[in-house]
Design a protein around this nucleic acid. Sequence first.
DNA 1: CTGAAAGCGCTTACAG
DNA 2: CTGAAAGCGCTTACAG
Lengths: 334, 334
Amino acid sequence: MKTITMADVAKHAGVSKSTVSQFLNKRYDYMGENTKEKIEKAIEKLGYSPNIVARSLKQKSTKTIGVIVANILHVFSTQVIRAIEDYCNESDFQIIVCNADDDPMKEKRYIDMLRAKQVDGIIAFPTGGNVDLYKQLIDAKFPVVFMDRILKDVQIPTIMTDNVKASSLAVGQLVESGYKKIGMISPSTKTSVTPRLERIEGYKQALEKNGIPFNPNSLVSDDLSELENKIHDLLTQASSPEAIVASNDRVLLKVLAYTKKHHLGIPEDIALIGIDDVAFASIYNPALTTIAQPAFQMGKKAAELLLKLIRDKSNEEVFGIYRFEPKLITRESC
Amino acid sequence: MKTITMADVAKHAGVSKSTVSQFLNKRYDYMGENTKEKIEKAIEKLGYSPNIVARSLKQKSTKTIGVIVANILHVFSTQVIRAIEDYCNESDFQIIVCNADDDPMKEKRYIDMLRAKQVDGIIAFPTGGNVDLYKQLIDAKFPVVFMDRILKDVQIPTIMTDNVKASSLAVGQLVESGYKKIGMISPSTKTSVTPRLERIEGYKQALEKNGIPFNPNSLVSDDLSELENKIHDLLTQASSPEAIVASNDRVLLKVLAYTKKHHLGIPEDIALIGIDDVAFASIYNPALTTIAQPAFQMGKKAAELLLKLIRDKSNEEVFGIYRFEPKLITRESC
DNA sequence: CTGAAAGCGCTTACAG
DNA sequence: CTGAAAGCGCTTACAG
């Protein structure tokens, strides 16, 4: 089972390796028709396919990028990955997928490994725990694009949903439906994941803009496992909200588990709007009004920026925060 | 921004490249303490990290595997990928993810590319359109494991849900709840995707086993886009089913869209059970009884088998079809 | 228009 | 215990 190399093709075609290489790289400028044909036939005959590892070593480009997400099981990440893969595919790039699980150690290991494997660039949902490492990457002019998390003081282009807008759309819709007592439920902000912070901030701003005073008792934010109790407290307190913004898909699930368990009618007992357009939104009873993030556009943009950086590492003007507009999808839950 | 190579480390430490290489590969057997320290310090000082591409070229192993799914957006695929990634991570392997979209051309391109990139093996949800290619891979003793699709005449280890059992659990549960007129809704079988076929087969067998004659009018199978009409026909015909088995998550969504649109009560008007334990099953109104596939175990097994094959290519006894037991999760929809 | 030669950054069998 | 040398399979500047 000897593997066929370029040398074999060259010998078979009666030319040199250089010429075969030129042929493969389509530098036909000065190549005789006759030579081309001989090489073509030899390749065909031997079933030759070039070893990209060898090429990569020489060319210092692997046509591979790393994608580090928190968890591929999150729908948003999956959509982003799919968009990245599609875009890369067109440019003959491939992606190595890594789950950092919001663990900076794991993230660091992956980054080191990806660099050792000579990937041409990385798209990451950064944990926030490796600022120094990312700074080193910048210094080394290594192409990186961030997704969904802003790291202060790190000059890396970042793709974000306009989260303030997302909350403002949600609150706006609720206000329009006549609700004044509006609560928000968010995952824990202990780890300062940007979207959570921004959505809370956007919620506060939107209340104010609508002339509703912010009531700290109407905002709950905790680990998912604590949420059931917190939701209970929220909804059974003296002046409890009539309407709720679920800050993402996972808290929406918690809220729905709660309303189901306690036989709360939506929207009669409690109106509801969720950020993230979950797959079951339109078939739920009642159908759920949601705010959709343009995950595919965002993934595509990330890939676009990264490939641009890979082609031209000194492309300074690429830096910045790219905001994408979320979209309100009105259904029946508020 | 010159990159640091082994030669730099060697010079800095005052030893030869060979010695540095030995050090990196932890072949300390005969290495002087003093030498070790010098090398360690040089690596530290220079911030050296080995180029795995170069190593791969020499060692003919990239510690990378390809994973070809139909579509990473499918929940089952995502779970399988996650399990594979976790397992690979422990062995310092990484995965390149590809979406073949059930397109044999795309699948072929990916396989060629992955091989050119010298991945050590491939886990694929095969389209079925590249039997010859897969046979070539077998001949070349290239490690491959299949997931979720059986290809006749191709001797490649294959990980499968026991789909006949899945249907039998579904039908059994329905019978136990007192239903006799049991329909099944499946995606199109035009492309002979194994699980669809097996689930239909299992449905027929289970009916028989329960003494219920199979009625061809109770089985619909078509493209998702046609399903709404087909469901309508199914449920409005003379002797329409009282209970339905949704053959996977995507048809379940179609069925729920239909019942919602037509205000059909579940289970009063129509009882329902779905294969695939969708994320919203427990919070739906009513909570949905489902059959769960052990996706994570299956992904793990696939990775396990593939790495075994990679380590020992002549490992013949690995071939076979590995069946995993689905699980009934009883809730409120039937 | 084509080929010989050097080199990408490692590993490894062998010599000493 | 350590080093010189060959080689993995390509690409590319240069010579002719």
